[in-house]
Write a protein that binds this DNA or RNA. Structure first.
Lengths: 163, 163
DNA sequence: TCAAGATTTGACTGAATCCGAAGTTCTTGG
DNA sequence: CCAAGAACTTCGGATTCAGTCAAATCTTGA
């Protein structure tokens, strides 16, 4: 009795396949994370309670989260950079170390001429320099880094699934 | 009567300097975008109405937005990549063209060996290939591109200001 | 095909929340 | 010193939220 047909392993790629209604709910909440359930229900053709239960499940499953996102510039972080990193041997220790730094917003393992990409959010140039030079380049296993300092953010959306 | 003292031009860097209380409110909403105003007020030492007014102003000013964010994998986007782009001449036409593509989640002008970085979210390999080869590399002014296909996302936060 | 089991849906209710409007305090500038 | 503006608090009514429960729907296995 191992069945339980429609429950793929979590974290792995193959998710329960969000249906069209849940997608529509997500789209509503991508426009306004505080939109009332009743209004969402009217938009997607469901009752208020049904929407509430679906939203709760989506949150519990980790499919989505409802959060405030800010423009880093307006909250005092004036230097950002993407750092490409090449590593000697196992990537995980380096990736994990980066993950634990609060200034590192984003870490991804890539195929290509960098092993890792990390986005860094800093208060000023000194802070950025210290991060790259003292914190990242000194990590054991880091062979080389290349920095791309942000000059202008042209687009930043959170609209996955809205297509 | 041109005054209007405390209204910096929007989009420009110099914001009204968010005070500590607003920062605390933002932190609350970064933990849970639907947290009730009364609960936030209790946490930051303000009345419910005051919190509501501040949140509304932060939203109106564009300092923050409250949105649902999803894991691309669970909503059916299985290929992502960062693309570094080098451009001939003015960057803006290329950046603007990228900005209008729904598959492009993120566009930034950088200093370094790439002029632009763009993050792409696609459904599968075919889709990704078409984006890079047919849509991006054919844009007028694009001199060269380099792709970094995501193998594993290790960290993704929305915690600016929470430090 | 049919029946048992599980999940989802829709309605109902009290409690909590949201929202607008007024009044008060505090700061700013003349 | 006074006026104007901004921010905060209080207050009441309308809305929304969060459980519960029965009915409906879908899946599973014989």
């Amino acid at each position: 009795m191992v069945s339980r047909s429609a429950e793929p392993r979590p974290g792995s790629g193959s998710s329960p396949a969000i249906d069209a209604v849940s997608l529509a709910i997500i789209e509503q909440l991508q426009e306004d994370g505080r939109r009332p359930y009743a209004a969402i229900g009217k938009a997607v053709g469901l009752s208020e309670a049904a929407v509430r239960q679906r939203v709760q499940k989506l949150l519990d499953q980790g499919v989505m989260q409802i959060v405030a996102v800010t423009d880093p510039l307006t909250v005092g972080f004036r230097r950002q950079a993407m750092v490409g990193i090449n590593v000697e041997g196992d990537l995980d220790p380096v990736a994990d170390a980066l993950t634990e730094m609060p200034e590192v917003e984003y870490v991804v393992v890539t195929a290509g001429s960098f092993d890792l990409l990390a986005e860094i959010v800093c208060e000023d140039d000194d802070h950025l320099l210290e991060m790259i030079n003292k914190r990242i380049r000194t990590l054991p296993g880091v062979r080389s880094t290349e920095s791309f300092v942000y000059l202008k953010l042209k687009k930043q959306t959170y609209m996955w699934g809205t297509r």
